[in-house]
């Protein structure tokens, strides 16, 4: 039981990661692919933050009378990764907008048909 509770976080992280991966490789709509990629990304954030959590710990802001803090390093890494993530997502969405303007569609198979690439 303790093993299950102690690993539940990691298993849900892996589940979310796989849902994201499945959405990316099995769905043809480009916007949906990007959302799948974002789910994958958020699951990686959870992996890092879960690793940094200490039972009974407080947020890593030094205060008197608090002995146990959670690990600040994953927080720093993920904090910057979230903002960088939205910037790169915006770049991907901009590419989708240009693809729509050029091909008139955002479905992967229709783009392949127009290019005669399959």
């Amino acid at each position: 039981m303790e093993f299950i509770i102690g690993h539940y976080n990691y298993w849900v992280v892996i589940f979310l990661m796989m849902v994201g991966l499945y959405t990316v490789i099995s769905r043809g709509n480009l916007v949906k692919k990007i959302i799948g990629l974002n789910i994958f990304q958020v699951s990686v954030f959870f992996l890092y933050i879960s690793m940094g959590t200490v039972e009974g710990g407080a947020a890593p802001i030094i205060a008197e009378g608090v002995k146990v803090y959670s690990n600040p390093l994953p927080h720093v890494l993920i904090l910057t990764a979230i903002v960088v993530g939205v910037a790169t997502t915006a770049l991907a969405l901009a590419l989708v907008v240009r693809i729509k303007e050029t091909y008139g569609t955002i479905e992967e198979d229709e783009i392949h048909n127009l290019d005669h690439s399959l």
Partner: peptide, 12 residues
């Protein structure tokens, strides 16, 4: 510096 926050959050 003293509470949760910083440049990234404030900018957003």
């Amino acid at each position: 510096d003293f509470g949760p926050g910083g440049g990234f959050q404030a900018g957003v």
